[in-house]
Design a binder for these strands. Structure first.
Lengths: 208, 208
DNA sequence: TTTTAAATCACCCCTAAGGGTAATTATATT
DNA sequence: AATATAATTACCCTTAGGGGTGATTTAAAA
């Protein structure tokens, strides 16, 4: 089955049941409900869920944070904090664990469901995040002399490691034209070789 | 000043003011409050904030989604949806824009503040993930003929756009040695130029 | 209408870069 | 002690790539 399994870590049984009911109403599966850190870690080892809903405070201790760290170290799944505490000190500690969401009680059904869906989707997309495609807008945002669309097309091919000859053939233009375009682009990027142009592009894409 | 500027896009003035007050209570700065898609886009162009709070429905249209797409295309800032709609159809569309958060009205102060903090922190971390530094381990993981540490050092310099001459000077070795190392590395990477080697490295770094 | 800008192409020059072969030194590994 | 492996260097050859100038065509902007 293709169901999405969610682990609930919450020491107040009434709230845990409440969350569980909500989850199942929305076509997810509750893989387990646990009340302690130990059981949570056990459950992660034996029956890894697709996502974890984590109460930060378990029986007076901030064990939720420790569980979050463990998830980051060992498992590649998203987790969402559900807690009554929204004070800056708690939040500060929580945010360093990079949770997919942070829900403050009392929460509403729509809010939890939305956060779940988005956490799952964003986590799935996270792998694609590395080495994003080039964007003309982002490149030009940091340039005084703008790169044209045509030049950008050539840049993408250079970025993919193509030679001038290959580019000429792919775009049905002469080798001279390719060289001319690239030369013009180098002036705009302040580059003087393919490799330096690529390094420059990487910089422009990140420097927001 | 180092203040974090937040743009509020919300067509109901009362709610917008409510959010604004909350934001300022928590030491953020409201860069502007706008009520329409046009003004939002204008504001993004002229006074880019650090984060955007977005109502999905603006005057009956789902303009918030369009704004979200625009932000993804052109700007490198996080955004959070704040909306009354948590139906699956709306959420489905919203999640494809990869928002940093999705808050369903009525929201509580702690919930919004936490989501803000986490969105900002996670986004900052996310940028570090983009164009990650090269890792010898990851590169070799997918190669039969392994790249040596020395060769990796040279690869890093090529990746940064350095010329052979520059590399020779930086490493206090002869130009011939540089060429030899690079040639050997090309054989391992199945590359035949700097640009193709860089493209190859990108591939090896992502193929996990 | 005139002018500006982008895309196209040609021709020249020249260096950086890539390909091949071979040799030496040092450092591990067996 | 013998043997790989990596790092270092030299020399040769060839070409792809980068720099400069100039010209034509087309489309958009003034």
């Amino acid at each position: 089955m293709n169901d999405i399994k969610i682990l609930i870590v919450e020491d107040e049984p009434i709230i845990a049941e409440d969350i569980a009911a909500l989850i199942e109403r929305n076509d997810f599966v509750v893989s387990a409900i646990v009340y302690t850190k130990e059981n949570a870690l056990q459950e992660l080892q034996t029956n890894l869920p697709d996502l974890v809903l984590l109460d930060i405070n378990l029986n007076g201790e901030m064990d939720g944070l420790l569980i979050a760290e463990k998830i980051n170290e060992q498992f590649n799944i998203p987790f969402i904090f559900i807690t009554s505490y929204s004070d800056k000190s708690t939040l500060e500690k929580a945010k360093y664990t990079e949770p997919s969401g942070y829900i403050v009680k009392p929460f509403n059904e729509g809010g939890l469901y939305s956060t779940l869906e988005i956490a799952l989707y964003n986590h799935a997309q996270k792998n694609k995040l590395k080495f994003p495609p080039l964007s003309l807008q982002k490149i030009n945002k940091n340039l005084q002399d703008l790169v044209s669309e045509r030049e950008f097309t050539l840049l993408e091919l250079i970025y993919e490691g193509k030679t001038n000859k290959q580019i000429a053939e792919m775009l049905f233009i002469s080798l001279n034209t390719v060289k001319k375009h690239i030369n013009n682009t180098y002036l705009k990027l302040d580059a003087n070789s393919r490799a330096s142009a690529i390094a420059c592009l990487r910089r422009l894409m990140t420097n927001k």
